[in-house]
């Protein structure tokens, strides 16, 4: 049951988007987010959407997968649109007692909804086309200048790698513990929310104990393999930036410029 959870939601493939240098992908995603927030009007926003659609088509990610990524944010979308529709001042279009709907309200709410959806789709595209481990690698390298101000960049990346590595292991373990507790008569499916939360204790405690034991063993195994922190470390996988990476970044910056220009024209 727990095995169905996919984390990192990587969708393996060999498309042009997949093969971009992950560092560039992260920066381009940043530029894209910049486009969305810089956009003042629908025309500027449309430019951002064109950019999203282009990357999306090139990535060959199935459309239903993209819609799936939106599922968790449906409540947020509804909440924002309701707030914007009802609580924005302006000339009312319809009025029932204290509730009024204004043209500005409708407009802003549509704008916000499109912006949020595009934001989520854009960042999902990054995680769909980049494996978690490559992503971690890229983050480590992008942040490496921050080592100078004593930010433990390597350690953070190592923590992420280990967390990713142990997610399936711990999920499997949780499944086993749940079955074991059920076999001993634990009741996890009935009662009110408080009782159910209490029923989790006999699952969480063994899970924590075992996680600590695993951590201890892993630490010894890492020491056996001469782990001594990030200094003097080399990497098996080298990240190489090529012409196409610079080209893609260039295109995204051009789009950002267009967005800013449109803002000046219509703003």
């Amino acid at each position: 049951m727990l095995k169905d959870i996919t984390i990192g939601q990587y969708f393996p493939g060999r498309s042009a988007v997949h093969s971009l240098d992950p560092r560039f992908k992260i920066i381009i995603t940043g530029v894209f987010i910049g486009m969305l927030f810089a956009a003042d009007g629908f025309a500027a926003l449309a430019v951002g959407l064109v950019f999203l659609a282009m990357s999306f088509i090139m990535s060959k990610i199935p459309f239903r997968l993209m819609l799936k990524s939106l599922k968790p944010i449906v409540p947020i979308i509804i909440f924002t649109s309701v707030l914007n529709i009802f609580f924005l001042d302006g000339a009312p279009l319809v009025k029932f007692g204290f509730i009024k709907i204004t043209a500005e309200g409708l407009r802003t709410s549509a704008f916000m909804v499109i912006r949020i959806i595009a934001l989520i789709m854009g960042s999902s595209l990054l995680t769909y086309t980049t494996s978690p481990i490559t992503l971690t690698d890229a983050i480590e390298r992008l942040l490496s200048p921050l080592k100078k101000i004593n930010l433990p960049v390597h350690e953070l990346a190592m923590m992420m790698t280990i967390a990713l590595r142990f997610i399936p292991t711990l999920i499997e373990e949780t499944d086993k513990i749940i079955s074991a507790q059920k076999a001993r008569g634990a009741d996890m499916e009935s009662g009110n929310i408080l009782q159910r939360a209490k029923a989790l204790t006999p699952i969480l405690i063994p899970l924590f104990v075992s996680a600590f034991r695993r951590a201890e063993e892993l630490a010894v195994a890492m020491e056996c393999r001469c782990y001594q922190g990030g200094d003097g470390r080399t990497r098996l996988r080298q990240l190489r930036s090529e012409g196409k990476d610079y080209f893609a970044l260039g295109v995204s910056i051009v789009f950002l410029d267009i967005v800013i220009m449109l803002n000046c024209i219509f703003g």
């Binding site: 978690p132 481990i133 790698t161 280990i162 990713l164 590595r165 292991t169 034991r213 695993r214 063993e217 892993l218 195994a221 890492m222 393999r225």
Partner: peptide
């Protein structure tokens, strides 16, 4: 325990 000595995801 092989699970507790493998560090990377690949």
């Amino acid at each position: 325990n092989p699970d507790n000595q493998i560090v990377a995801t690949i």
